[in-house]
Computed example of a mutant assay.
Amino acid sequence: MTREYTCIICPIGCDMVAEIEDNEMISLTGNNCAKGRSYVQQELTDAMRTLSTSVVVKGGELPVASVRLNRPVPKASLFKVMAEAKKVILLAPVRIGQVALKDVAGTGADLVVSKHVDVIH
């Protein structure tokens, strides 16, 4: 079976075509580097994703703060991660690097603030 992938490892975004048999990659074309091969192999065995979103900030100069996961999580858990992230409400001030939520959805990844939000003056 032939499957198409767009690599998300770097900004080039190589469009690749993989020949797959019994969930194993037989051949790969279109990748500009070895990272493409690793990406497709990862997708076949255990697809992982990172996530960036925003959470509510009460009493802040901005109504939300951007947050991101500190490590990739299984692709299948993204909807659970987003559901938990939607419930987060932080109190200003919030700082870059502050953990907004530990072990999101039991993934072992933390949701970390990536934008300062100061208190309203």
Score class of each variant (00 low, 15 high):
A109Q: 08
Y5H: 04
V99M: 13
E61G: 09
G30Q: 13
S54T: 10
H116D: 09
E43W: 05
T107K: 13
C14T: 13
S114W: 00
T53W: 10
C33P: 07
L90K: 12
G30K: 14
L91W: 07
G97W: 13
Y39L: 00
K75G: 05
K115N: 05
C14W: 11
A105G: 14
P11D: 09
S77I: 00
N32E: 07
A18Y: 03
L78A: 09
R49L: 02
S114G: 05
I96V: 15
D46Q: 08
V67R: 00
I96T: 15
T29W: 07
P72S: 04
F79D: 12
N23R: 10
R37F: 09
C10K: 01
M1L: 06
V117A: 01
V119E: 03
G60V: 09
V67P: 09
I9C: 05
A100G: 11
V64K: 08
G108S: 05
S77D: 09
I120N: 02
R71F: 10
D22M: 02
R3C: 05
I12E: 02
G30C: 13
G97E: 11
V64F: 08
I96L: 08
T50K: 05
S114N: 07
G59S: 10
S54A: 07
A105M: 14
A100M: 11
R3A: 09
T2E: 13
E21N: 10
A105Q: 13
L101H: 15
V17S: 04
M82K: 11
G59A: 11
V113K: 02
T53F: 08
Y5S: 05
A34F: 03
